[in-house]
Design a binder for these strands. Sequence first.
RNA 1: GUCCCCGUAGCUCAGUCGGAUAGAGCGACAGAUUCCUAAUCUGUAGGCCGCAGGUUCGAAUCCUGCCGGGGACACCA
Length: 633
Amino acid sequence: MAGRGPGSAFGKPAALDRRLYRRYDRPLRHRRTQGHFRRQRFNEYRSQSMNPYNDFKVIVKAELEKMSQAGALPPGLDLSRVAVEPPRDAAHGDLATNAALVLAKAAGIKPRGLAEALAARLRGHDDIREVTVAGPGFINLRLNDSYWHGCLAAILRAGASYGESDLGRGRAVNVEYVSANPTGPLTVGHARGAVVGDAMAGILEKAGFAVTREFYINDAGVQVDTLARSAYLRYREALGETIAEIPSGYYPGDYLKHVGKALAARDGDKWLEQGEADWLPEVRRFAIDALMAVVREDLAALGIEQEVFTSERALVEAGGVEAVLETLEARNLVYTGTLPAPKGKAAEDWEPRPQTLFRATDFGDDVDRALKKSDGTWTYFASDMANHLDKSRRGAKLLIDVWGADHGGYVKRMKAAVKALTEGQTRLEVMICQLVKLTRQGVPVKMSKRSGVFVTLREVIDEVGKDIVRFIMLTRKNDAPLDFDLVKVMEQSRDNPVFYVQYAHARVRSVMRHAQTAFPDIDQAPSSLAGGPLDLLTDSSELAIIRLLAQWPRMVESAAETFEPHRIAFYLYDVAAAFHGLWTKGKDHTQLRFLIDGDPKLTAARLALICATAQVVASGLSVIGVQPVEEMR
RNA sequence: GUCCCCGUAGCUCAGUCGGAUAGAGCGACAGAUUCCUAAUCUGUAGGCCGCAGGUUCGAAUCCUGCCGGGGACACCA
């Protein structure tokens, strides 16, 4: 109906996709680990990184290697499944490793026994305060407070770059999103895909990928012909004709009146007496240009700027589909055949018809797919294959498409196509976005592109602001339906995550402002705060926040690896909750307040903590394209 | 009929490439405000993780089959 956009929500990659991704990534990751290892050895006195999970994974693996060398473990064990993670329950410790559990079988040692042996070795480490073996063979590590203080300092010194990783190692990724028919302004339906795609791009950038943001303009189908005819109607109207009613099958929206007027202003009545075949191509081109300008403005209002806009029509005219055909024919993947009738659907008008087909079934699809329509022109699928081949040839070995849920049935064939066209060298990941249910105080707001009374994206942005739109769109997994209530998202309460997170940031800024007057001698530059007496931070709530902040890099990586941008929003909510908790704790226990009269040292340490908190919140918001606020009023 | 997604507390949803006693918000109940923004916070109650098998030392997570909800099923985009 309208490009790929109108759906809205994210999709969790299927199991098969996860496996594909891992295969693609494994050798690289392995190398990365080794690199880490070398660096660690090379620089033994380096204070520490900002990622305890990576640091201690290296340490755990090093101890395992030593155990192998000492004969306590068989040589050549596969350590790839060894993980160091936050324990499910913070009461268990700061870090937990599953090493004993995953190695027990291959080593022929009982998990508990292996765990005890490894634990004994880890007990010698400087930063580790306590090592316990629990459950079936988990090893829980508790770190010295000084380690976390060092972590906090490192976070502050890293500044805006904190959370960046080299997961992507500069590899090119193409993220294609929105990709609507240029037949009208963007609607709320498009907004989710737009936000999800743009946030995904931001996350991948943070994770070290070279990201291209792309928009594929579906300007070659019958819908843009309809657009042209609708615009032509408005053109006649602009020249004085009375159009009583827009016939069904035409786009009725008022926005086309501007197009009609603009065309009349430019060309006068030169198209009035001509036949459709003569005026249509030019009117179409004119209308598409006009509407793409509107679409770009709508995207800009959302804070989205895609650097590549690919026109389907231009791609086809440049011979893109021929390139596809050539590639496929070289591999004998094209033939003429007749597809079976679709089942379960009343297909009275169906008739067997020989078609030009792509052997999609060779690549996991359910049925071979048509490349040509009955009128001899290319199918949308054929030109979309050209689009994907083109993207791949431009260098991206990972392609991400963000589609609406109504295109879910299209995923298999496009993946098959990419596999065939690139001989498995390029991977396609499709993020499916479910519908957004737009309501106002619980009452559904209708949106229908053709009715002319739809709710445009612009209207929603004007009403609630782009930052709220962006954040709310990421508060659900993309493949789950999302409720968007125009009133609720403006509420200032804990159950409104946007507010809650923004408020945490604003509260920090508020304290910092107070500190400026109460403690003018404290230099608030993060690098200065990092040098403060951080060892004064000893309360469990304070250390809990540092641990949470230390998870930011792995949050970025996990969101990138799983293609799940919503994780960022949930993480930020957790950080905000920890901060608000500490704040209120200071109500009951005044010694825990951030600003302590007569104690500039403790105050400086507390400022370092909340400054880092605000920094991570701001960093997270920036990754998903939301502007942090200085105050809420 | 086939394929894809989903099914977790009364409601809305998290659950880190299989791990420990499955978490949060809302709602309910009980509390906290001379003090940096109470726009917040603390606590209590509430679960055969749709059902049944299977793989595994170990399953909400992986596999199979059902049940229930949504979406897609030649030539549209």
